[in-house]
Every structure is written in structure tokens, then in C-alpha cells.
Design a protein around this nucleic acid. Structure first.
Lengths: 187, 187
DNA sequence: ACCTGAACACCGTTCAAGT
DNA sequence: ACCTGAACACCGTTCAAGT
């Protein structure tokens, strides 16, 4: 019985990751303290250091696992080929901003600033999305150069919306984003 | 002789602020430690606590001072009225992203996430810029609703560009941003 | 009014010892 | 192989005492 979660006493590295997600989602970045993790898992600090070299390594592991989740979530962007480019862009925007794991997404981007390993995970994840966005513009009939410029702009706007909103975006903003996409698709 | 800087031994609150700017600009957010500040100013920690209640209060003061600098820097946005709306937008973009105090700007936005007082300063500063951007679109002949939507989008894209760039933006990105503005001004 | 010095609490890290 | 327990270093905070 491998891969079972927390069977009996002993923990796996993944148990620590899951606990980290939960804390981040509940109370944000600054709540992710060693003590907090230990209480939640019912072990002492020493246990942590058997699984991870230090906090930096743990964050890297968390980020790496997150990037994989992220990729799985966005894998279906590729399967969106049957939709019109316009519909695809709309889907992607919504999926970025409507994120139930909205607070996770932002936590990762903050860490990325100070932690190179996390930065690499985020960059890789971003790259995939940017590719999909660029692809949509190419399918909409723009040449490579024009598609690149428009994709960068739309992606930047998406990230900007993410950072500017204190709460998950409301209906009014949703409508504005749709009109923004219309604009970006005019030639 | 009031307002003199660090005349002889005694410090003013502003001396602490200036030291904070210097550290942030040199080595970023996580370098701003009490010890670091004290060594730089040649005093002990106790001195800090005479001027500020705690680190949170100090950060608020820093943010507030920054917001005033920010406003002074952007005050001339208003004096830009003689320029064409297009030129004004270009100026504002460049001024946001070309910022010599680029690392300060990002530090403030990161704090804003956890510190309500800092958040207020940043929001106020953002509000001014957004107003100027919206005004430019209104002057370009868009009705209030359309100007609002376009201003929000351009502003979000600006913030997004800011967060996505690891280094100050290069020439290629500059060109893409100009083309993006052209697009946003088409009707 | 402004600062020192010493104490304390919090939290990440180490490590010898346990099962 | 996985964890405990106790120690330590780092850093923010307090406060009585100095000038």
C-alpha cells in the first residue's frame, strides 16, 4: 500500500505539501510557519527536517507541486482547439481570475520574487499559458509578430487584474474584461 | 535649524525613512531588518522604538512618505494637458515602468497585501494615476463608460508588465507597449 | 527628548538520542 | 526510516536607566 495518505503515524513529504496548501488557502502567505505546520500535522519540528533541508527547500517543493497542479488545470487549454479563439481567450481569462485557488496563485508569485526555484516554477507555468494565448491570436488570423504583441498585452492585463483586485473580481469587472478582449481582437 | 538631516547625534523619524529607502533600493524587501537599519544609522534598537511603535508602524510611515513622493512624481501628469492623449498615455506608461525607483514600487505593492495601512497608501496612489489615464481616454473622445473600461485595462496591463518583468523592461517590450496603446486607442 | 543595554518571545535550524 | 527533545541563533519588542 504505497502512496496512502498519512497511514498511521508516519508522514510523507506529500503530507507536508498538502498541509501547506491548506494553510496558504486559509490564511495566506505569512501564516505558513513551521510551528503552524507541526501543530496541524501533530508532530515536532525535527520531523520536518527529516523530510526537507530547510524552509526554502520546502517552498520549492510546494511550488513545484503547485506548478504540476497548475499544468493539469490548464492542460485542457490545448483541448480547447474546437472553440473559437475568442471563446478560448474568454475561458482562459476566467480560469485565471476565477481561480478557486486564487490565494495560492498569488502566494506563489510573491515567493517567486525572492526564491529562484519558485520563480522557475512560476515562469514555466506562465510560459504555457502565454503560448496558449498567443496560439489563440494566431488562430484568429494575426501574423506571428502581431499575435505575440497581443498575447503579451492580454497576459499582462490578466496578471494586473489579479494583483489589483483585493477580492475575487465582480460582475462589473467581468463585463469590462470581455469588452477588453473584443478590443484586443479588432484589427 | 529645524529639518536638518542627522545633525550631530540625534535622529529624526525621517532619517529612519531615508535609511529604509536606501536599503530597499539596494537589497529589496527582505533586507529591511531592524538590525540592518540600526547598523546603518549607528544606533541601537531601542532608539527605533522611541520613534516608531513597531515595525508595522514604521512600514506605514515608509509607505505614506513613498505615496507623497509618488504623487509629486506624477503631479506633472496633470500638467501634461497640452500633449495629445496618446502622448500622455505613453508618458505615463514609461513613467510607471521606467521608474528608477522600480524596486521601491514593487516593495510597496507586496506590503500592501499584508498591511492595511500600506494598502491604503498604494490604493490612493493608484487612484490618482487611474484618474489621469481615464481622463486621457475621455479627451480622446470616448464616452465615460468606454473610457473607464479602457483605462482599467491599460492600467492593469501596466501593473502586469511591472510584475512580469524580472529586469527593467527592454527596447523590444517598449515597442510592444506602444503598439498596445495604439490598439487601445482605436475605436 | 533621545538613546543604551539587557532581557525576553518567537521562530527557523541542528543534532544526539529514541523506536 | 521516521521522529522526539533540547539546544541554539536570529530578530522583533519591552523597559528601566542614562544623558
Amino acid at each position: 500500500m504505497p502512496k496512502g495518505r498519512a497511514n498511521a503515524g508516519r508522514l510523507s513529504a506529500d503530507d507536508w505539501i498538502q498541509a501547506g496548501y491548506a494553510i496558504l488557502a486559509d490564511d495566506g502567505l505569512e501564516a505558513l510557519k513551521l510551528d503552524r505546520l507541526c501543530t496541524r500535522l501533530g508532530v515536532t519540528k525535527g520531523s520536518f527536517y527529516w523530510h526537507f533541508a530547510d524552509m526554502a527547500a520546502y517552498r520549492s517543493a510546494l511550488a513545484h507541486a503547485w506548478a504540476q497542479l497548475h499544468d493539469r488545470d490548464r492542460r485542457h487549454f490545448a483541448d480547447l482547439g474546437h472553440l473559437t479563439p475568442r471563446a478560448r481567450l474568454s475561458q482562459m481569462m476566467a480560469s485565471l481570475l476565477g481561480e478557486r485557488q486564487w490565494t495560492l496563485e498569488r502566494a506563489m508569485r510573491e515567493w517567486a520574487r525572492t526564491d529562484p526555484a519558485v520563480a522557475e516554477s512560476v515562469r514555466a507555468a506562465d510560459h504555457r499559458v502565454l503560448d496558449a494565448v498567443r496560439h489563440a491570436f494566431a488562430d484568429a488570423g494575426f501574423d506571428a509578430d502581431e499575435a505575440d504583441m497581443r498575447a503579451n498585452s492580454v497576459f499582462a492585463a490578466g496578471i494586473g487584474f489579479l494583483h489589483l483586485s483585493d477580492a475575487p473580481p465582480g460582475a462589473r469587472m467581468d463585463a469590462q474584461r470581455e469588452r477588453f478582449l473584443d478590443l484586443m481582437l479588432t484589427r
